[in-house]
């Protein structure tokens, strides 16, 4: 009995260390905060257009429980954001190949810088909202750039990714969800 009690601290240590190791290797990244908006309707915020020849977007551009529309991808980007540049080819490919409309949300940017950025890298967006003050992005719960939201036909946010999109993630997380939404509709 005494001998077992001596081993108690070691046992506790192994349990705690094991838990930490498991969290470290297989746990979720603590920097990724689960979105509070998953399952909720998109914010009401109305976004003015960035370009003269392309509309901005607001609540009415997404579906609602009464009037369903096609699912939409909302991609938050800015010309000052390096990872946005890195993910841009994948966003472009998604918009082309998956026949899903992608709305761009340009945040905290200079209009001319954003226009130049899109001219250089290509513009895959169906609509682009312009939020120079960074107020609308707070309604969307944005805290890092870029962020991407998948909105279903009823106008509810079903998935959010913080950080740049990359092929593996698109294949694993995004495409199955997009296809499921399309299958539903």
């Amino acid at each position: 009995m005494k001998r077992i009690l001596f081993l108690l601290p070691l046992g506790l240590f192994i349990i705690v260390a094991g838990y930490f190791a498991w969290q470290l290797l297989y746990g979720r990244d603590p920097r990724i905060i689960p979105s509070a908006l998953i399952g909720n309707p998109v914010p009401e915020t109305e976004l003015p257009p960035l370009k003269d020849d392309k509309p901005g977007f607001g609540r009415a551009d997404f579906g609602s429980p009464d009037a369903e529309k096609a699912p939409v991808l909302v991609n938050v980007f800015a010309s000052w954001c390096g990872p946005c540049r890195a993910e841009h080819p994948f966003v472009t490919a998604l918009a082309k190949q998956e026949s899903i409309e992608v709305y761009g949300l340009n945040a905290k940017d200079n209009r001319q810088a954003a226009l130049d950025w899109l001219r250089d890298l290509g513009d895959p967006y169906a609509k682009i909202g312009f939020d120079p003050q960074g107020k609308a992005v707070l309604d969307w719960g944005v805290y890092g750039y870029p962020e991407t939201y998948l909105v279903n036909g009823r106008g509810e946010i079903v998935f959010k990714h913080v950080g740049p999109l990359y092929p593996d993630l698109i294949e694993r997380e995004l495409l199955p969800r997009i296809r499921a939404l399309k299958g539903e509709g």
């Binding site: 689960p34 509070a36 707070l138 719960g141 805290y143």
Partner: peptide, 8 residues
Amino acid sequence: LVARYGEY
């Protein structure tokens, strides 16, 4: 704020 960013 909680509605947008969660209880976190």
